[in-house]
């Protein structure tokens, strides 16, 4: 049975420069009703074994390649691939090596300022083969909204989709400690149609079944039940939308989120709709359609609350 699961895909502990022990991270994740996390310490896997003593949340094992030219998330790779010789011109070979070992690859905070402010934090890799890149952080760090860096990430992601690439969008809290955290309910929702596990998380990301959110669960299905990540025939479709604020209100009820409108973004532009449960959409061939939920937060208008991975057309 298909179900959406709130997850945090970018976490650090004392094993690198986080403030959390592994146990504290797991507890904090439970408090936020996160079903899964990715443990992605900088350049090390040494925290992985410690997660085994916890039955919840589920843990997808990862590592954040904290290189000198960009931070790259690697999830579920069966073998270690060296991060230290990754340079802008060889990144396609490095990502190919990770793919050979079954790993997923994500671009972390592509528009963070780099060295020496946040060392290597700005994505400077000269990727030619985007087929090897599975996902990209659209919402990063403390802000679950469109700050400058997130705006640029969204723009880059849209242009890559329009070039025919299939890249799942994610939210990465880049979670180091609970202190100073806002946007408590922000997460990536993953759609799984199997028993929830690290493998189910990996499959969801690989198949583009992601929703980036500042809190609300937001997604759509076509009249045939196709949804984000799927490929459908072009032509006329009715998209049926769900907006669910339950988890947000339970864990972050003090922050007032009010959904107001839906935006459908595609290769040919953006169309705005009032908040409604059904939208009739004429789709073009070989395109992509991502839905966005906009509204207000604590009275501040015109905030991007959530965005879906695209549904693609043949």
């Amino acid at each position: 049975m298909k179900k959406w699961y709130p997850c945090e895909l970018h976490c650090h502990t004392l094993h690198s420069d986080g403030g959390f022990t592994v146990e504290e991270l797991m507890k904090a994740a439970e408090e936020r009703e996160l079903c899964g996390i990715c443990l992605t310490d900088h350049n090390t896997t040494s925290g992985w074994d410690e997660t085994e003593q916890f039955s919840s949340p589920k843990v997808l094992r990862g590592i954040e390649w904290t290189t000198y030219h960009g931070h790259m998330l690697v999830l579920g790779s069966k073998a270690y691939v060296d991060w230290r010789d990754a340079v802008p011109v060889n990144i396609d070979e490095k990502t190919a090596e990770v793919k050979k070992h079954g790993g997923l690859i994500g671009v972390a905070h592509p528009f963070q300022l780099g060295t020496p402010i946040c060392t290597g934090g700005h994505w400077d890799f000269e990727v030619k083969n985007w087929d090897n890149i599975d996902y990209m952080e659209i919402f990063s760090e403390g802000s679950a909204f469109l700050n400058t860096a997130n705006k640029k990430a969204r723009r880059l992601w849209h242009s890559l989709l329009s070039e025919g690439n299939r890249i799942a969008p994610t939210m990465g809290r880049d979670w180091h400690r609970t202190r100073a955290n806002t946007f408590i309910s922000a997460c990536t929702y993953l759609l799984c149609d199997e028993e929830f596990s690290d493998t189910a998380m990996k499959n969801a990301i690989e198949n583009g079944r992601t929703v980036v959110s500042a809190g609300p669960l937001f997604f759509f299905e076509t009249e045939r039940g196709d949804t984000v990540g799927d490929t459908i025939e072009s032509g006329d479709h009715t998209l049926h939308f769900t907006v669910d604020l339950k988890r947000h209100e339970k864990i972050d009820g003090g922050r007032r989120i009010t959904p107001e409108k839906i935006l459908i973004v595609s290769g040919s532009g953006e169309t705005e709709y009032p908040l409604t449960s059904d939208i009739s959409l004429k789709t073009e061939k070989n395109s992509w359609y991502s839905a966005e939920l906009w509204g207000s937060v604590d009275g501040e208008e015109n905030m991007l609350l959530a965005l879906t991975a695209p549904i693609y057309t043949k």
């Binding site: 004392l14 094993h15 690198s16 420069d17 350049n43 090390t44 896997t45 040494s46 925290g47």
Partner: peptide, 24 residues
């Protein structure tokens, strides 16, 4: 493994069944 953190003074121990955080 690695010790990716800001500390400019570090002490690490690696044994068969123990390692300082960051190391295997």
């Amino acid at each position: 493994g690695a010790a990716h953190r800001q500390d400019s003074e570090q002490h690490h121990v690696i044994r068969r069944n123990f390692a300082s955080v960051g190391f295997l």
